[in-house]
């Protein structure tokens, strides 16, 4: 019936198609690939906070309030004038520590550089009054370095700086506007511990990211 040659040609065509489809699917799954500039991955994210610029600056500069707001998920320690140490805790009890240099670049501008931590990154934040009495736009730029392997892993794990940034902006907005972060992880349910653990994994996926 069909010759060997035809079979090989079909198999080849099928392989090429499968690889092509795979690539398209992979790209579709992450449509927003970060830009690259000078060896850095760069993302820009913004969020609108329904408070005047001064109130947003006030949130950052009121150390006591900031500590109280962060209490559940991170501790901040000032090492010297512009060097900070931060320890973040995740729900599973893990700890991530990093050190950063923070500098004030202007009245509404701030930048930071991570000097020691899991991902080499730097970023800047700018506060812009939003139109129509909508408060303040927090515009953030985040740059990070990442090898190919790390990048590939980053796609599959939560260690994606872009998602982290979006999550952080949402938290900041909620803390400034409401003074708290909503969390439904500990709401009662009829789940067994095993089912609860699986649901918490789903939750993490549904919480991380989000459009600020």
């Amino acid at each position: 019936m069909t010759s060997n040659g035809t079979r090989w040609a079909l198999a080849g065509a099928a392989t090429v198609t499968a690889v092509g489809v795979g690539r398209v699917v992979a790209r579709r799954r992450r449509r927003h690939q970060p830009d690259r500039a000078g060896g850095w991955y760069v993302v820009h994210r913004g969020i609108t906070v329904d408070r005047p610029v001064d109130a947003v600056i006030g949130f950052w500069s009121d150390r006591e309030r900031l500590d109280r707001a962060l209490a559940e998920w991170a501790t901040l320690e000032q090492l010297d004038e512009n060097r900070w140490r931060c320890v973040a805790r995740d729900p599973a009890g893990g700890r991530t520590e990093w050190r950063a240099e923070i500098s004030v670049d202007g009245p509404r501008r701030l930048s930071w550089r991570v000097t020691r931590g899991p991902v080499i990154q730097q970023g800047q934040v700018e506060l812009v009054p939003a139109p129509q009495d909508r408060g303040t736009e927090i515009r953030a730029e985040l740059r990070w370095r990442s090898g190919r392997v790390r990048r590939a892993l980053g796609l599959t794990t939560r260690r994606d700086p872009d998602r982290g940034l979006r999550d952080a902006l949402r938290r900041i907005k909620s803390l400034i506007e409401t003074g708290q972060m909503i969390d439904t992880r500990h709401d009662p349910s009829g789940r067994s511990p095993k089912q609860e653990a699986a649901t918490n994994k789903v939750r993490e996926k549904l919480m991380a990211g989000g459009r600020p």
């Binding site: 329904d50 949402r170 907005k173 506007e177 909503i182 969390d183 549904l206």
Partner: peptide, 23 residues
């Protein structure tokens, strides 16, 4: 939440801060 722009303009079902799992 009662504190975001949507709540302030009485569009409570559009609140920005009350869905912790927005994905």
């Amino acid at each position: 939440c009662g504190s975001c722009w949507y709540c302030r303009t009485e569009q409570y079902s559009l609140c920005d801060n009350s869905n912790p799992q927005p994905v």
